[in-house]
Simulated scan of single mutants.
Amino acid sequence: MGIKTYRVGKLSDGIDARKIPLSAVTSGAGLVFVSGLPPVNHETGDLVRGDILVQTRQCLENVKAAVETAGSSMDKILKTTIYAVNCAYFEDINAIYAEYFPDVNKRPARTFCTVGAWPWEFDIEIEAVALA
């Protein structure tokens, strides 16, 4: 079984344009791997500006688009990692995150990390691993 890479609309175009050496989503060995995706609208390629609630929702929409592009779905996500610039965002991020994973018995494992900064002006990035 080989490794496949997938394109996620304008998000992948932006990665290519900035010569960032990664794929937004890959799959292999029955798993789907979603790179850390920032709040960039995957349909327009524009950075989504707004508070942490707006940014979190866009990141999760990107994760959803990525897993679906690879033939998976949000309910098959096994693990997520959230990178945020401020741990004070924890509760707000959780409020949006719970909307995308409403079943308390099927929520993926998760790690929450604080980071210094990115080369763009955003406050959060989310990555995921799912069953194919």
Rank of each mutant, 00 (worst) to 15 (best):
G36S: 13
T56G: 02
E121Y: 02
K19N: 14
I15F: 11
T69E: 15
T26G: 11
G9P: 06
G30T: 12
G36R: 13
G116I: 00
D51Q: 04
A98L: 01
A109M: 10
R110S: 10
P108L: 03
F101A: 05
T114Q: 13
A17R: 15
I96M: 01
V54H: 01
D16R: 15
K76N: 15
A65G: 04
S12I: 08
N105R: 14
Y97V: 03
N94Y: 08
K4W: 04
C87Y: 14
W120C: 03
E91S: 11
A66Y: 03
C59D: 09
N86A: 05
I20M: 14
T80H: 06
P39K: 14
T80A: 08
N105F: 10
I96C: 01
W118F: 14
S35P: 04
N94C: 07
S35C: 13
Q58C: 02
W118E: 04
Q55W: 07
P39C: 14
N105L: 06
K106T: 07
A17H: 09
S12L: 05
T114F: 02
N86Q: 05
M1R: 12
V63F: 09
T81D: 11
L53S: 13
E43D: 12
P102I: 10
R18V: 01
L31M: 12
R49Q: 11
A65Q: 03
E121P: 00
L22V: 07
W120Y: 11
S73I: 00
F90Q: 08
I77C: 00
K10L: 03
D103Y: 07
L60A: 08
P21N: 09
T81M: 09
G9L: 06
T56H: 06
S27H: 05
R7G: 11
G28Y: 13
L131M: 13
D13K: 13
P38M: 09
S72F: 08
N62G: 01
L60R: 11
I126H: 08
R18H: 13
M74W: 03
V40R: 15
V32M: 09
D92Q: 14
F33C: 07
A66E: 08
V85F: 03
I96H: 05
R57W: 03
V67T: 08
D51E: 03
V67Q: 08
V85S: 04
P39H: 15
L31S: 10
E61K: 15
A98S: 12
Y89V: 00
K19C: 00
Y97D: 04
A70H: 07
V63C: 06
S73N: 12
P21K: 06
R18E: 11
A117Q: 10
E121C: 05
V34I: 10
I52G: 00
T81A: 12
